[in-house]
Design a protein around this nucleic acid. Structure first.
Lengths: 116, 116
DNA sequence: GTATATACCTATCAGCGAAAGGCATGATGA
DNA sequence: TCATCATGCCTTTCGCTGATAGGTATATAC
């Protein structure tokens, strides 16, 4: 029933897109990503760790990210950065994202650019 | 893996949103909606009948649409129109849609509006 | 010394769009 | 005439994926 989920649908593919985008600027670790997404979107999008960590693992398994372990203050952080393939995928996802969102935005605004 | 699906992800909640939006202008029947979505989005979004019909039924079951059968040329068309609840839901979904897409767009553009 | 923040992780679940079917009528055309 | 396509409705099965809810461990703050 989803009493009141933080994110109201429209989230398909968004976690991967955000993770790839943020990591394309600089390497980050999972916990950091979770809060970065919160902060940068001003709470508009809040991804739990249970979403981000599996996403990171899947992206790495797909060759889109690579990781490196760094011990910091006795704790171990796993830093991720994008690979070349990851950056290419990011471009493709961004293009798709624009296509879809522009199309939906057009419908919402009531544009009637019908061909026939 | 999705060899090559027509719509590249980012489609969560979109069918319901489009259906509610289009029906808020005028009543339409399922088959008509399928093609309207194709046409208005210039093929950017193509929803198969197997997506649209279940969506219509679910929306009607939820009280967001109501239907009326009209015989046309011996065939029967089922016309759908939005209810008051449907229009309210459309507003809410549109607001959510804007929030999410604006947030993602901000991240893509690399805005760093961090509060702290 | 107990809670909170940090930092990692997994397993289970539900929702939803995609795909692939099926049924029936009317028009087209070879 | 007979087949094919467009119209118009529908359902079932499937897989993906985000959400939820856990679990572990250390360091710091109160």
């Amino acid at each position: 029933m989803a009493e009141r989920s933080i994110n109201p649908s429209f989230m398909n593919g968004v976690p991967d897109l955000l993770v790839l985008r943020l990591l394309s600027d600089r390497e980050m670790y999972g916990y950091e990503l979770v809060q970065a997404i919160r902060a940068v979107t001003r709470e508009a999008i809040v991804l739990a760790e249970g979403v981000v960590y599996p996403a990171l693992h899947a992206l790495e398994a797909g060759g889109l990210l690579k990781s490196k372990r760094k011990p910091v203050n006795g704790r171990t952080r796993v830093y991720y950065q994008t690979t070349a393939a990851g950056r290419r995928r990011l471009e493709a996802m961004t293009a798709d994202w624009s296509r879809i969102t522009n199309a939906v935005a057009g419908v919402i605004k009531g544009e009637a650019h019908v061909a026939a």
